[in-house]
Nucleic acid binder design. Sequence first.
RNA 1: GGGGGCGUAGCUCAAUUGGUUAGAGUCCCAGACUGUCGAUCUGGUUGUUGCGGGUUCGAGUCCCGUCGCUCCCGCCA
Length: 606
Amino acid sequence: MHPFRTHTCGELRREHSSGSVRLSGWIFRKRDHGSLLFIDLRDHYGLTQVVIQPDRDFFETCQKLRLESVITVTGKVEPRTEDTINPELPTGAIELLADSVVVESEADPLPIYLAGEEDGPEDLRLKYRFLDLRRERMHKNIMLRSKVISDIRRRMIEDHGFSEFQTPILTSSSPEGARDYLVPSRVHPGKFYALPQSPQQFKQLLMLAGFDRYFQVASCFRDEDARADRSPGEHHQLDIEMSFVTPEDIFAVVESVLYGVFTKFSTWKVDATPFKRIPYAEAMVKYGSDKPDLRIPIEIVDISELFRTSKFNAFRSIVEKGGVIRAIPVTAIADKPRSFFDKLVEYAQSIGSKGLAYLVFEAGAVKGPLAKFLSPDDLTALSKMCGTKDGDVVFFVGEMAKEANRIAGDLRLKLGRDLDRVEKDCYRFCWIVDFPMYEFDDENKAVIFSHNPFSMPQGGLKALQEMDPLKIYAYQYDVVCNGYELGSGAIRNHQPEIMYKAFEIAGYSRESVDKDFGALIKAFRLGAPPHGGIAPGIDRIIMMLTHEENIREVIAFPMNQRAQDLMMNAPNDVSIRQLRELHIRVELPKHHEHKDQPVQDQLPKT
RNA sequence: GGGGGCGUAGCUCAAUUGGUUAGAGUCCCAGACUGUCGAUCUGGUUGUUGCGGGUUCGAGUCCCGUCGCUCCCGCCA
C-alpha cells in the first residue's frame, strides 16, 4: 500500500465500501463526542469524514490534534446508514473507519480561520498566504486561474496557430512609460538592467525574425501604485503579436479566445462576437470613459449647442469658453424623494463638479430650476435628443470637455449602481477604437503621445506631415469588459521614417530615438513585416471570471498596496557585502534615516 | 504626493449624551457526551481600545498629531 494514500479525499463512494484504503490530508473540522470522534479530512480534491472509535489507541491523540494538522488515515470505507448520509458532500454516502492514524504534521493554533466564509484582515491573509490559499474560495480561484491559462494556451496554439515564446526578464530600461524596476549589474559598475514593463520590443523583433504569430503568458513589471484592479510590481498579460494583419484580424483572434474562455468558465451571458466597436471620441461622450461599463443602460448626450444661445448664463458662458454641456437622462426616477437629488448634487460636487442641474419630466410638464431658462422649442429638442418620457429625469454637467466627461461618466456609474440598473450576470464586451495619436499636455504645454508611441498613425506619414497632430488617430484599440480595460493593442509603426516623424511631433529628436529604440529602428531597416498585437491582462480576466472585486484574490502570492510581500518580507535589507559587490551605496531620504525596518516581522518560527 | 474609510481580545464585532471593573461570539485551555457533519453542553484564560499628546472630575467615545491597512486621484508608453 502506498505510504500516504490509495485515494484522494474527494474520491470515495459507496462502491468502495468495505475496501481498505488510505487517505492523507488536513484536519479541516473535528466533531468530538467524547466517545466518538469525527474528523473532516481535506485535501486538494475534497473532504472525507473519518470516524475514530474510542477503543483505538490513537483516539486520544486525534482528540488533541488541532485543526489543520496533517494526518494519514488507514481504514475501511463504510457506507453510511440512511439517516447519516450527508447529501452536501460528494463523499457523503460513506465514511472512513480508521484502523490506524499517522500524524504527519502537528499544527499550532492558526492565526486565521479557514472554515468560515469571512476573509479576515488582509495583512494577516497576505502574511500567511499559504493558509489563506487553503480556504475553499481562494483554492478555487487559483485553480480556475490555472485552468483558464492552460485553456488560453490551447486556444492560441491549436485554434489560431500561435507559438509560445520566452523573452528576457533582465533587459534594458526604456525611457517611455512607467517607472522601471532596476537590477544593478555587478560586472558593469554603475549600470542597470530593468525588468520589462512588457515584452513589447522583443515581440516586435520576433515578428521581424519571421515567426508570424507570437504569444506569451508574460510577466510584466511596472513600478506604479496599486489599485483594486491593478497589482503593484508585477502582473501577467496574454501577450500577442501577429504579422501582416489589420486590426480586424487581431480582433477576430481576441474575440474568439475571450468569447471561448468566458463562455467555458462562466455561466454568465457573454456578448456574441464580433464585439461592438466604439470610437474613442464617442465613448468619451456617451459613457464619459474609455472603458465603458455597457451593462448600464444610461447614455450621456452632448447638448452644448442648445445652450450656446440660452438665457441660462452659467451654461451659456461655459459653452462660449469652449466647454461642453452634457445631459445624463435617467428613466423613471421622477418620483424619487428630494433627498435623492440633494445627495446626488452633493456627490457631484464632491467629485469636482461646480453643480448638478436637473430637469424632471413629469405629468406632461418639465420641472426644475433650469426649466424657465429653456424655451418650449429647446425643451422639445432636449427631450428628443435625450429620448425622455414621462417620469424621466435629465441631469446636466457643464464643464470643459475633459472634466465634463469624467464627472458625467462617474455619475453614470453611480446612478447605474445606486438605482440597481446594472444588467446582471453578463459580460458586455466592446472595442474602443480610433484613439488619438497625441494629446495636449496642459501642464507642460506640449504635444505628447497619448498612448503607445509604437502605434501606426492612421493616414501614415502623410497624416503626420499634413494634419493637426491632435486630430490624428492611431491604429490603437482597447478591449473592454464591464468597465474594465482588459487589454490594449495596436498596429505597430514599422517604418523608420514614420517613426522618426511621429517622435519628432512629440518632441524627440532623431538622435534620441536612435539611442532609446536603436535595436528596433535598426531592425526596421532590415526588412520589417507590417505587424500588430495586443496584450489582454490575465489577472483581470480571472478576476472577472471569479467575480472578485480585488485582483489580489486571484493571485497566489500578491504584494500589498504598498508593494510589499508580507510573507517573504520583500523588499528587505541586503548585506553591505552585497551592496559593495554591486557598487551601490544607499542614501536614504531624511525621514527614513532613523526608522527601523518598516516591513512586518518575519514569520514566527514554528 | 493628495483625498476618503477603517483601526477595541488571536479572529469577527458590541459598548446610550463622554460615566462604575471594556462585553459577546469564535479560537484557545479544561471537563462532559456514541452519529455528528459550522456537533452540543459546562467552566476558564485572553485587552498598552494602533501609537503619542491634548480637553475634561472622568475619554474606546471629543480634539490634534502620527502609524498601519484599504479605496480613490495623481501615476499606469
